[in-house]
Computed example of a mutant assay.
Amino acid sequence: MTVRLSIRSYSLVMRAHLHTYHQLVLPLHGNITMTLPGYSGKVGPGQCVVIRAEMMHEFKADEKCRFLVADLDNLPESMQQLPRPVFATSPELVAYCQFLELQLTQSAQPGLIESMSALFYHLLQNQVIPACRDGRISEAVRFLNEDISRTPSLGELAVRACLSLSQFKTLFKQHMGMTTGQYLLTQRMTKAKALLAHSDLPVSLIAERVGFTDVSAFSRRFSVYWGETPRQIRQR
């Protein structure tokens, strides 16, 4: 098993190519527009696009955006029969990708990179991929992940998914295994925990970045979700 990890940026000029290895693209900051067999659209934070070896694909992204890219000789078994090449990543994988960004942008030792790559692949093997075959729900997920500090209404999400409100709520729960509120809370708490553990940002700013205007309300919700206070996470 060989995994080559890197942090990359692209340009707004649409490019197309293929390669002899498999590739995963996981947005960290911003979206990437992808066109490949089975998918055409934007992929944002909290999602992963799987590009198989020898698969022609087109892509573009704002130069300010950043992506974790994994080149693989072998795909994990769970990713070999995907109904669609884009899926929502688990909170554990999201948090680890954020950690990898910090490590890979510094002068990491080769042995450390090898260990981090092995753990990354292990998390991929344990990734439970939601069987979301409905592009309308995927669009809503992409919009939620685009900026987790905002709280769009169910009506707004339903319009983006081109569904009635009742259809949207039913299909979202069916495909994602949770409500939109539960999904957004998971993304927010995962992001907050990663920032607390791997950055020196003030708690007030972290709270703001994950959609809380009141620090006390953020701390209470965080403590209930993780069973630890923000201070305890930071003091580890």
Rank of each mutant, 00 (worst) to 15 (best):
L123R: 10
Q23P: 01
Q81K: 09
S107Q: 14
C97P: 09
I137R: 04
Q80K: 09
M14L: 14
D214K: 14
G181K: 07
C48I: 05
D214Y: 03
S9D: 11
Q182D: 15
H29L: 09
H19R: 03
Q80H: 05
S164K: 02
M55F: 06
S117D: 08
L185E: 10
L171W: 04
Y121M: 02
L119W: 10
P91I: 04
S6P: 03
M14A: 12
M79Y: 11
H17R: 03
H122A: 10
G177I: 02
F172D: 12
M189L: 04
L12A: 15
L68S: 01
A70I: 08
T180L: 02
L119Y: 10
A108Y: 06
P230D: 07
C48A: 07
F212T: 03
M56I: 14
Y96A: 07
C162W: 01
Y121H: 02
K169D: 01
R231L: 09
Q81P: 01
T213Y: 14
L26N: 03
R4L: 06
T170C: 11
N145S: 10
M34L: 12
S107A: 12
K193S: 04
L28H: 08
R188E: 05
Y121A: 00
R15Q: 04
S219I: 09
L124C: 09
N31V: 07
I137H: 00
L68Y: 06
H22A: 10
A16D: 14
F67V: 10
A61Y: 12
D147C: 08
F67H: 09
Q106N: 08
Q187T: 13
S78F: 07
M1R: 07
L93A: 13
T190G: 01
G38F: 08
L24E: 12
A217L: 13
V215E: 14
G181R: 10
R150K: 04
P37V: 11
R234N: 03
C97G: 13
V86Y: 14
I148H: 04
L5Q: 09
V128F: 15
D71K: 13
L195E: 13
E63K: 04
M79R: 08
H57K: 05
V3Y: 04
T105L: 13
L12V: 14
M189E: 02
G135K: 00
Y183M: 03
P202I: 11
A16S: 11
F59P: 05
Y10R: 10
G227Q: 02
R133P: 02
S90M: 05
L72A: 06
E92G: 08
S223F: 02
S9H: 15
H19K: 00
G46V: 08
L195Q: 13
Q127R: 06
L171F: 01
L196M: 11
R236C: 06
R160D: 06
T186K: 07
Q106C: 01
L165K: 06
A192E: 04
L68N: 07
M178Y: 08
A118H: 12
L93Y: 14
E114N: 09
Q187L: 15
T180C: 08
T170E: 14
W226G: 06
D71M: 12
H57D: 05
R4S: 02
T105P: 13
F222I: 07
L26Y: 11
G41M: 03
M14Q: 14
T33K: 11
I233K: 00
G135I: 01
L196G: 11
M79F: 15
Y21C: 02
L195M: 13
L100S: 10
T35G: 11
